[in-house]
Design a protein around this nucleic acid. Sequence first.
DNA 1: TCATGTCCCATAACGGCGATATGGGTGCAT
DNA 2: ATGCACCCATATCGCCGTTATGGGACATGA
Lengths: 192, 192
Amino acid sequence: MDVRHKAEDATRDALREAASRILRREGVRALSLRRVAREAGVTTMGIYSRFGGKDGLLDALHAEGFELLSEAQASLPEQADPLEAIVAHARAHRRMARDHQAHYQVMFERSTGFEPSSVSRERATGSLEALRAKVSDAVSRGALDGDPESIARAVFAQVHGTVALTLAGIEGGDGEAGHDAALRALLRGFAP
Amino acid sequence: MDVRHKAEDATRDALREAASRILRREGVRALSLRRVAREAGVTTMGIYSRFGGKDGLLDALHAEGFELLSEAQASLPEQADPLEAIVAHARAHRRMARDHQAHYQVMFERSTGFEPSSVSRERATGSLEALRAKVSDAVSRGALDGDPESIARAVFAQVHGTVALTLAGIEGGDGEAGHDAALRALLRGFAP
DNA sequence: TCATGTCCCATAACGGCGATATGGGTGCAT
DNA sequence: ATGCACCCATATCGCCGTTATGGGACATGA
């Protein structure tokens, strides 16, 4: 029984990995239940019993995406300057979006026809927490002035905006340097 | 012949209007060729002969969306303060996104599986022009300092970021006031 | 040990999708 | 008048997500 349970978890993982692989390589559009099931060596119904359907599978990928984001931001080197810590945080965000575009779309675009579950939505909102902590640090050290929550949201919106426009193909000529410059301007605007 | 041509344009318009109506009321997901054709009193093939397929139809809606955006920003009252003109511009942008969410998704989210044509992509990039003009005005009047192109892109990203996060259901508590405050902070960062 | 019942999952089916092939009818040119 | 070319509606194809259904493995009680 216990073994059986383990086996179930194994095919569950196999399904999630197959889905993740297809998502990375061929995008949201190519992610069909039949395709994922075939690639994982399971019948389509296997996805229904494990994930409840396509939304459940996408929910798992949604979570995986936010894990990728927080991992990228957790392993950053320490910064003496609290503002530089925020810039590094934003850079990691942009890098994650560039390296996992399709995951990023599942995370932030609702036109896929997928609605994240309530816990997934909370996790998404919670992804602001790490940034809020860095902003709080900057505020307490006199590098920024204002409500950390509001500042963090403004920064998050700025970073997500640059990423989203890039993914949409509305590209400025400045690239990463320009994105950094825009963020630094925003931070200057919150200077004491 | 001329009459015939007019009639063709009429059903073309009927198709575009039906598509726009379905998009507004039921979202991108509900927009199928069969549905649009039925609602316009035409067979599915009528869309192929007029628009070349689903991408052509979405391209028309993409264009319609950017028209809605530029219309909303063209009819704004004059502002004495050039920075207030930029804030008003951003407000119109956010209002358009709120009032035409599905159009906005077609305009900026690529996870719909629709790739805009090259002219549509140019039109999208060109939608920055009106903002760039307002920024240029602010720079020449000494309210901002820097490259107008870069500043305009930063502002656009900031505004789009707040809108996109709202549409994604990652909502801050501050609402419109918070969005204005974030934009004003960014503008402060570009002050001379 | 054997019969019974329960649960799980693979096969099959359903309605809808975007896209394509095809056949019949209309209108023009010869 | 007759042939031809073009246009569009019908039918079809291969997918999709989801649901129904049938059979087989396993546990349970006699």
